[in-house]
C-alpha cells in the first residue's frame, strides 16, 4: 500500500465578475491528477509556472479544498473538514513553502516558530520543548544563537532551513516541498537539498518534491510526474523520464535544461530547434480541442504517458504483445 494516493484530484477556482459578483468562469488549476507516493521515496512534480504544482501540493496538505477526487492516506480517505482528523493528518503530512520569507511570521522569534507544531501536536514541557527546538535547528545546521532571532535576521538559505526544521518537527511521514530551493543561489541550493536528503536518510520521510527545475529533480527524485495546464502528461521513474521521454512536452522541457558543454553547443542548438519544430507540428495531436492533455496510458511497468487516442491504442497493443 502506498503512503499517499491522489485519485483524480481537481481544484477549480471560481472567477467572479459582473454586477452581482456571480461565478462566471473557473480556473482549472488542477484537473484530474492521480499519483501515488510510497513510504520513503521522493516523488517529483515538475511543470512550468502556473501549471498547478503549488495548488496540487496545497490540496494534499489540506490547505486547498478539492473540487473533486480523493486523497487517501495509508489507504484511508481523510475528511479534512473534521478538525480532529485534520490535526492527526497534519501531524504526518507537512509542507515546506515556496517563499521562505513569507512563510515565517515576521513578528515571532525562531523558537516560537519552530515550536508551533510541537505545542499543538505534542504537549511537551517547556524545557523538553526548548531542547527539541535546539535539536531541530542542529539537524538543519543552525546553532543555538538562532533561537531568539527574528526571520529577517537570516539569509534566504537559512530561512528555508528554518522552514524545513519546522516541517520535520513532528516527525511527519510525508513532506510537501514546494520549490524549496528555487529562490536560492546555486551553492546554497546544493546545501539545502543535502539537508533534505540527510533528513530522509535519518527519518525515512517521503517527499512530494515540487520544482520547475528538471536538473534539481534528477538529483532528488526516484519517480516523477510532469504537469502541464493542471494535468499530468507523463509519470515515470527517473530513467523513464530522462532517457525515454515520450510526450512532446516532456521532450521540450528536457531540451530546455541549460548545459555547460561548449564543444557541442552547435549540435545542441540544432537538436533544440528540431524538438521545437516537432512540438509545434504535433501540438494539436497531443492536446485535445480545449488544449488539455489526454488521459494517461500505461506504456511499461512504471511509465505512464498522456498519448493521443490513436497512438494510445497502438501502444496498448504493443504492450499486450510484449506481455
Amino acid at each position: 500500500m502506498s503512503l499517499i494516493e491522489v485519485k483524480d484530484l481537481q481544484v477549480h477556482f471560481p472567477i467572479r465578475s459582473g454586477f452581482w459578483n456571480r461565478i462566471t468562469d473557473q480556473v482549472k488549476a488542477v484537473d484530474g491528477v492521480s499519483f501515488k507516493i510510497n513510504a520513503g521515496e521522493t516523488f517529483g512534480l515538475v511543470g512550468e509556472s502556473g501549471s498547478g504544482k503549488t495548488t496540487t501540493g496545497r490540496a494534499v496538505v489540506g490547505l486547498e479544498k478539492a473540487t473533486g477526487g480523493q486523497i487517501l492516506y495509508q489507504g484511508e480517505n481523510i475528511a479534512l473538514n473534521k478538525p480532529k482528523e485534520r490535526l492527526n493528518y497534519n501531524q504526518n503530512v507537512q509542507m515546506i513553502f515556496q517563499d521562505s520569507l513569507s512563510s515565517l511570521n515576521p513578528r515571532k522569534r525562531i523558537e516560537t516558530i519552530i515550536a508551533e507544531p510541537l505545542r499543538n501536536f505534542q504537549k511537551l514541557d517547556s524545557e523538553t520543548e526548548k531542547i527539541r527546538v535546539l535539536q531541530l535547528l542542529d539537524i538543519v545546521g543552525l546553532g543555538p544563537d538562532a533561537l531568539y532571532k527574528y526571520p529577517h535576521q537570516f539569509s534566504g538559505g537559512q530561512r528555508q532551513r528554518i522552514g524545513i526544521a519546522r516541517a520535520v518537527a513532528t516527525n511527519p511521514k510525508l513532506i510537501i516541498a514546494d520549490e524549496p530551493v528555487s529562490a536560492l543561489d546555486l551553492s546554497v541550493q546544493a546545501q539545502v537539498l543535502n539537508f533534505l536528503k540527510k533528513i530522509q536518510r535519518e527519518f525515512g520521510v517521503s517527499y512530494l518534491f515540487i520544482s520547475h527545475d528538471l536538473g534539481v529533480v534528477r538529483h532528488m527524485c526516484d519517480r516523477l510526474a510532469i504537469m502541464n495546464h493542471g494535468r499530468l502528461v507523463e509519470v515515470g521513474s527517473r530513467d523513464d523520464i530522462y532517457n525515454h521521454p515520450l510526450h512532446i512536452y516532456t521532450q521540450r522541457l528536457l531540451e530546455a535544461i541549460p548545459q555547460v558543454d561548449v564543444r557541442h553547443r552547435q549540435e545542441r542548438q540544432q537538436e533544440r530547434l528540431r524538438i521545437e519544430k516537432i512540438y509545434q507540428e504535433q501540438k494539436n495531436d497531443y492536446y485535445d480541442q480545449a488544449g488539455m492533455a489526454y488521459p494517461l496510458v500505461q506504456v511499461s511497468q512504471t511509465h505512464f504517458v498522456a498519448l493521443p487516442p490513436q497512438a494510445a491504442s497502438k501502444r496498448k497493443l504493443t504492450a499486450q504483445g510484449v506481455d
Binding site: 517563499d99 513569507s102 499543538n120 522552514g163
Partner: peptide, 14 residues
C-alpha cells in the same frame, strides 16, 4: 494569503 498563515494552519493552530 501569506504563507505563514498556511504554515500555522498545517501546524494545527486553531
Amino acid at each position: 494569503k501569506k504563507d505563514y498563515v498556511a504554515a500555522s494552519i498545517t501546524s494545527g493552530t486553531n
